[in-house]
Design a protein around this nucleic acid. Structure first.
Length: 647
RNA sequence: GCCGACGUAGCUCAGGGGUAGAGCGUUUCCUUGGUAAGGAAGAGGUCGUGGGUUCAAUUCCCAUCGUUGGCUCCA
């Protein structure tokens, strides 16, 4: 190898010269030994590579450690290889699918053949991995010809790897080895297995080979690893905390909703406390929508099959949906509505429209029913009957962008008022590979897709583009959030649709006295009440903002001698539309306070001898403790200030 | 829908081939109390459902329903 001069530019702009060839580790070592010990990978000319890769030309270099997501990913990807090595050692003959790093950790898809596999074996695998990690085996990269690669995996009898190799071009194939394990892999990897100090295999699940439900299902082992045992403990603690926030758990503890096998799976039953929460949210949005120029409409829960044949829903989802409802009349069929838009289209059509009255905005809290796959049902986030905060805006083509922008404002207002700090805005476009999944012309799609992106850009939204995520009738702007266990869900959605107006032959008379076709915008800021509330529960851990809390106050008499005073107070508060109850139980005040705290009730109003004689109330705020003694008037002021803080 | 796990009192869970147990909650009684659990007694379960094996099944096996972790799907 020639020893020519290599100039390295570091992220801070500093320039270093070496007599090459060198590696990222060499550069790190020159800065400090400590840094060199912590380098997991390197970004050389914007490409993430092994920290041990030779750099033999001038380059920009960023040293990646645990503090960089790419550093973590490299470590986790290497951990997947380590797990594969452990699996081969423990279960000779296992076949391996793919084993990538994910947002938090890694997985490997494996085929155990006929061997039974259960969760008890996870600890064995972890221990084997740790044993192998301690050997500090180097990850070695090797370029390999396609023929040699095929030969290797043919000898090994791993048809999955052979299939992967089949899709690769000769000359681009690399193998990575550590210890006794060699894998087809693009890399990069950490320098050696010794970095992996703490490992947890989190769960096992089935996963179709190459994501295709028609192909064999492999066993997917999910794991995570860390440089320090302490980091693993903290991570596991975080998972525990997430479980405590789970809306299914809190929903039951606070008596918000339930399910019944007899009613049917995926059909939530809202309990009184949950129903109040829902009602508050609905009223909040109703008020905002009146201001934004929406008109409420109400439509039935079913519609004739014809309606959905017209909309295209029947063709698209008819087989996978609740099946038609029949009547005593022959050939008469109705469908439970899976969407409100067809009904709203018919409302639009109920009278001739002039360009002067557009846009019209029809809003409805519409309950819809979709036969979701049984394996998909999950708490309130994925159910078979749910209520959309739906509305359809019918406008002229020249109004689309302005209307779309207004809906973005409304959605952002809703998310802000409810304290959703973390969401991503996703532009969901059609999948160019699968045009048969969509209805309508390319021209309309192109137009709708660019309108969405233009408005999002004008609004300054940072968006992520996802192709293939559009609805079958149009592209969407989706507001995505994560739940307590890290799953991504769509909440709010705004969609531009040129297709349904056409299918329903919607028209308006323009200023030219000719008939024109309106454009539809579908939108739902919450998405569905069910899912929105699920996420709200997890975000707040059940500590709802005062204006939403099902019980806003708990009146706690010190003893039954003060029940009359408590009753009077209760009536006074009810007069002011404040929700609450009196804890009449024969319990000590400490117990009543504890129970009210556990129920996360915002204000505890304690009344005893002192309060009764002074006509006052002692206030205790949830999670904050004693706020002292106030008159009713002063308390109301405190209360109102808190209640309207976010609105 | 597919693969795996789970299903015992209202809730959280322990147990295990010989017809069940704890804590919390609930009921009654005592207690009338001052900012996160006062005391006592009682009630409450055909161990998800249906088959099978067995002298005997809640326990073992099979099926089914439900829940659940993923995969696939998501108007």
């Amino acid at each position: 190898m020639s020893s020519k001069s290599v100039k390295i530019t570091l992220p801070d702009g500093s320039l270093k010269s070496y007599i090459g060839p060198i590696t990222a580790i060499d550069v790190a070592r020159e800065i400090s030994e400590g840094l060199a010990r912590n380098v997991l990978a390197a970004r050389v000319n914007d490409q993430v590579v092994d920290a041990t890769r030779i750099i033999d030309a001038d380059a920009t270099l960023e040293l990646l450690t645990w503090n960089d997501q790419d550093g973590k990913s490299t470590m986790w990807h290497s951990s997947a290889h380590l797990m594969a090595e452990a699996l081969e050692a423990l279960y000779p003959g296992v076949k391996l699918g793919i084993g990538p790093a994910i947002d938090a950790g890694f997985y490997y898809d494996v085929d155990f053949g006929d061997r039974p596999f259960d969760g008890d074996q996870l600890v064995l695998i972890e221990n084997k991995m740790l044993e192998l990690a301690r050997q500090k085996n180097d990850f070695k990269r090797a370029d390999i010809s396609k023929t040699a690669a095929i030969e290797y995996f043919q000898r090994k009898g791993d048809e999955y790897k052979l299939e992967l190799i089949d899709g690769l071009a000769d000359g681009t194939i690399t193998f990575y080895s550590q210890g006794n394990f060699t894998d087809l892999c693009r890399g990069p990897h950490i320098p050696n297995t010794g970095f992996i100090k703490a490992i947890k295999i989190l769960n096992i699940a089935g996963a179709y080979w190459r994501g295709d439900e028609k192909r064999k299902q492999l066993t997917r082992l999910y794991g995570i690893s860390f440089l320090k045992q302490k980091d693993l403990s903290e991570y596991l603690e975080l998972l525990e905390e997430a479980k405590r926030r789970d809306h299914r758990k809190i929903g039951q503890e606070l008596g918000l909703f339930t399910f019944s096998k007899k009613v049917g799976k995926g059909l939530p039953l809202w309990l009184p406390k949950g129903a109040i929460l829902r009602e508050r949210l609905e009223n909040f949005l109703r008020k905002a929508q009146v201001k934004a120029g929406y008109d409420p409409v109400v439509t039935p829960h079913i519609g004739s099959k014809e309606l959905y044949v017209t909309s295209g829903h029947y063709e698209k989802y008819g087989q996978d949906s609740f099946q038609p409802i029949r009547t005593p009349a022959a050939d008469e069929e109705f469908l439970l509505k899976p969407m409100n838009c067809p009904h709203h289209c018919e409302i639009y059509k109920s009278q001739p429209r002039s360009y002067k009255e557009l846009p019209v905005r029809y809003a409805e809290f519409g309950t819809v029913y979709r036969y979701e796959q049984s394996g998909e049902l999950h708490g309130l986030t994925r159910v078979r009957g749910f209520t959309q905060d739906d509305a359809h805006i019918f406008c002229r083509p020249d109004q689309v962008k302005e209307e779309f922008a207004k809906v973005i404002d409304l959605t952002l207002y809703v998310l802000k008022a409810l304290g959703f700090p973390e969401f991503t805005v996703q532009v969901s476009l059609r999948d160019p590979e699968n045009p048969q999944k969509y209805i309508g012309s390319d021209a309309d799609w192109n137009r709708a897709e660019s309108e969405i992106q233009e408005v999002a850009a004008e609004k300054g939204l940072k968006t992520v583009v996802e192709t293939g995520e559009a609805a079958f009738y149009g592209p969407k702007l989706d507001f995505m959030v994560r739940d307590a266990i890290g799953r991504k869900w769509q909440l709010g959605t705004i969609q531009v649709d040129y297709n349904l107006p056409q299918r329903f032959e919607l028209e308006y008379v323009g200023s030219d006295n000719l008939k024109h076709r309106p454009v539809m915008i579908h939108r739902a800021p919450f998405g569905s009440l069910e899912r929105f509330i699920a996420i709200l529960i997890e975000n707040t851990a059940g500590n709802f903002p005062l204006w939403l809390a099902p019980d806003q106050v708990a009146i706690l008499p010190i003893s039954e001698k003060y029940h009359d005073y408590a009753q009077q107070l209760f009536l006074d508060l009810q007069e002011k539309d404040i929700r609450g109850f009196i804890d009449h139980r024969d319990e000590k005040i400490g117990k009543k306070i504890r129970d009210a705290e556990v129920k996360k009730i915002p204000f505890m109003l304690i009344v005893g001898e002192k309060e009764q004689s002074e006509e006052k109330i002692s206030i205790r705020a949830h999670g904050k403790g004693d706020l002292g003694t106030l008159s009713l008037i002063d308390f109301l002021e405190t209360f109102q200030k808190e209640a309207f803080r976010d609105l």
